[in-house]
């Protein structure tokens, strides 16, 4: 087994709002090795997004230990985390991924604007990324001119254009028809297979599991054995 890129060790996340307490993650432990394609499944509200957010360093655990790419996001400052995400993490959301006033090209270029890459190099990389998701001819299109599936593919291109180690996706096919969903999943599989990206994909779509090397099930904040089989 390859070296562990993500180590989740008895991680807890409790949301407190007024007197209410929601235990979104209840002492969860798992490891993701470099090169893995892991699908995280489970019913709505089971804590999948919460776990993904912790891994991406856009939220902090309330207990346990979390190591991602040899650092502990919980111990880093906001600006350190921002920089770290820019370099190492690619993230795809279910919806609201793209900036509507920017073209597909400009959306994909966004992470690269934070790097020292020259304009020509940025352009080359964006084109490569768009080609990989099969949208090189849509570079100048605006999000509203793209279908839902195309939008998600642009979002994926943006997620890996800066060549991160880890790709995280939170229900990226949740809003898509079967055909588009298949295309999107295929792209993740290729990124994992051909470029060696480690992929952690949250879904409650059983099809996604077929592309993944490993499937984990989450329920009420804890990992469970496959419930349906």
């Amino acid at each position: 087994m390859n070296k562990a890129l993500i180590e989740v060790d008895h991680v807890e996340k409790v949301f407190r709002r007024d007197s209410n307490e929601v235990r979104a993650l209840d002492g969860i432990s798992l490891e993701v090795a470099e090169g893995d394609f892991l699908a995280l499944m489970g019913p709505s509200g089971s804590g999948k997004s919460t776990l993904l957010n912790l891994v991406a360093g856009i939220d902090r655990p309330t207990g346990g230990r979390l190591r991602v790419l040899d650092v502990e996001p919980a111990r880093m400052s906001e600006s350190q985390l921002a920089r770290w995400r820019n370099e190492h993490i690619g993230f795809v959301f279910q919806t609201f991924n793209l900036i509507p006033v920017l073209t597909a090209f400009e959306n994909v270029e966004l992470p690269l604007l934070l790097t020292r890459l020259a304009r020509a190099e940025r352009q080359r990389r964006v084109q490569t990324a768009l080609r990989l998701v099969g949208l090189e001819d849509r570079a100048e299109h605006y999000p509203r001119q793209l279908s839902g599936g195309e939008e998600q593919r642009v979002a994926i291109a943006r997620a890996f254009v800066a060549d991160p180690t880890l790709l995280l996706a939170d229900e990226p096919t949740g809003d898509l028809d079967a055909h588009s969903a298949e295309e999107v999943l295929e792209i993740f599989a290729r990124l994992n297979r051909e470029l060696g990206k480690t992929v952690l994909l949250v879904t409650h779509d059983a099809r996604a599991a077929r592309h993944a090397g490993r499937v984990l099930h989450l329920d009420k904040g804890v990992l469970v054995d496959q419930p349906e089989k």
């Binding site: 921002a82 820019n86 609201f96 991924n97």
Partner: peptide, 15 residues
């Protein structure tokens, strides 16, 4: 609000 969150996810600092 959503766009701000996306930019920050991409590594843009709050500043």
């Amino acid at each position: 609000t959503a766009e701000v969150a996306i930019l920050k996810t991409l590594g843009y600092t709050s500043g």
